[in-house]
Amino acid sequence: MSETKVFGMTPTWRRDVHTHYCPGCTHGVAHRLVCEAIDELGIRDEAIGIAPVGCAVLIHQYMDLDFIEAAHGRAPAVAYGIKAVRPDKIVFTYQGDGDLASIGMGEIVHAVNRAWPLTVVFINNAIYGMTGGQMAPTTLLGQKATTCLSGRTAEANGYPVRMCELLATLEGPAYIERVALSKPQHILKAKAAIKKAFENQVNNKGFSFIEVLSTCPTNWGLRPVEACQWLEENMIPYYPLGVFKDFE
């Protein structure tokens, strides 16, 4: 492998690790934002992450934090198990849309409703990435996937699930926001949202849920730049960015 030289990365980012993510995938950006938030808040010694099943199961390769790998969809339950014992720790999950919005729908709804101080970073790229591009609950109508080759239809599969809107109907959560990683302006907002989601937990201010619209160039069949454009043109109109709940 070619030599990688890293200059000025935030301390939580683990050096000398080559990425396993595909070219153009925005997981790397989201990982970096999480690391920066943790370092800016100075909580590296206190943070405990729960890895999902999916591409981000290897998230702990990139972050110098305590981590546990959860079963598919169960990360929020694992988070509660930890937080019950160690309320002094900063506990977060990082989950994709297959993990969180499909198999883990039960766990996330009750996790948000119970509303203990926890942080969830939800990566929505409208597809199952690691398994090779199958339809997710978040796959858009008309979007093609390996289990809906002609595109998703509402008749067969229902409509794409809007998690932020769904969870914002609950009384409990402190903070719910949807952000995107498709251009720098969005990334700056995403950074602020993710940091706030951790800060809320530091200040014991309840449950924070950040949905991050992300790209999957490989399984979308697009080049990285095209994927960002596709996200802008197709995902944001259906999944509007913004704050859905804020205790302040």
């Binding site: 546990i68 169960r74 694992v78 198990g81 019950a84 766990e107």
Partner: peptide, 8 residues
């Protein structure tokens, strides 16, 4: 899975 988190 909560048990798993606690046990960890």
């Amino acid at each position: 899975n909560m048990l798993m988190g606690g046990a960890a």
